[in-house]
């Protein structure tokens, strides 16, 4: 099959380019895009991409597959399909490219750190766990499963324009994960940190994040909850 690969090695290339490569794939098996990349790398070891768990839980291999962000390791070739007779693989859009399919995620991680992604509770910890009812715990479902792959934030035009000021869908999903946690006591501090024109309100609700999330999570809904909390706070 024909694969069109985004290539860029800063030491060699003046500018990025698309490279067409013909590759034989094993018959009778619907392999994943990551398996294909490994085959390509065995032929050309200079091809760079991140990968680790190869089962969709570590979030290393987010990339743009035929125009849509996703994880290479859980996107099969049949699911990916072809675009103009080729499989087109590019790095996630909107962040600087380090090399080939590897992007510089500094800005993405900075936004994650900005929302204080850790439990805050100033009460002395009990001798056992902090109790939490199953109903309280259920509120974290659909939030804590985020794998920080950046598929959502790099599919978001608001994040493209303001990666330094708009927290982005991934960071906001995590912000709500702590706001929703009955064990966390820092709601007002967290909301105060988000209460500006950019951090939350640059979300225009176009739901690109929801349509690309490889874990089936819904950042738009979480952002809606935060908006409500911010509005209630100001009244």
């Amino acid at each position: 099959m024909l694969v069109s690969l985004y290539r860029y090695n800063p030491e060699v290339d003046q500018a990025p380019y698309m490279q067409d490569v013909e590759i034989k794939i094993p018959e009778g098996k619907d392999i994943m895009v990551l398996d294909l990349l490994e085959l390509l790398k065995a032929k050309d070891p200079s091809l760079a991409f991140r990968r680790s768990c190869r089962e969709g839980v570590c979030g290393s291999d987010g990339m743009n597959i035929n125009g849509k962000n996703g994880l290479a390791c859980i996107t099969s070739l049949s699911e990916a399909g072809l675009k103009g007779g080729k499989l087109v693989l590019r790095p996630l859009p909107g962040l600087p490219v380090v090399r080939d399919l590897v992007i510089d995620m500094t800005m993405f991680y900075k936004q994650y750190e900005k929302i204080k992604p850790f439990l805050i509770n100033d009460m002395p910890a009990p001798a056992i766990e902090r109790l939490q009812s199953p109903e309280e715990r259920e509120k974290l479902d659909g939030l804590y499963e985020c794998i920080l792959c950046a598929c959502c934030s790099t599919a978001c035009p608001s994040f493209w324009w303001n990666p330094d000021k708009f927290v982005g869908p991934s960071g906001l999903l995590q912000a709500y994960r702590f706001l929703a946690d009955s064990r966390d006591t820092a709601d007002s501090e967290r909301l105060a940190d988000l209460d500006d024109p950019f951090s939350v309100f640059r979300c225009r609700g176009i739901m690109n994040c929801v349509s690309v999330c490889p874990k089936g999570l819904n950042p738009t809904r979480a952002i809606g909850h935060i908006r409500n909390m911010l509005l209630q706070r100001s009244t």
Partner: peptide, 23 residues
Amino acid sequence: GPQAVYELDHMGLPFSRTEAGRI
């Protein structure tokens, strides 16, 4: 072990819960 597990809960690990609210 129990102390190390409770520390993880205090750190925020979202353990599943029993009706009694325990891990």
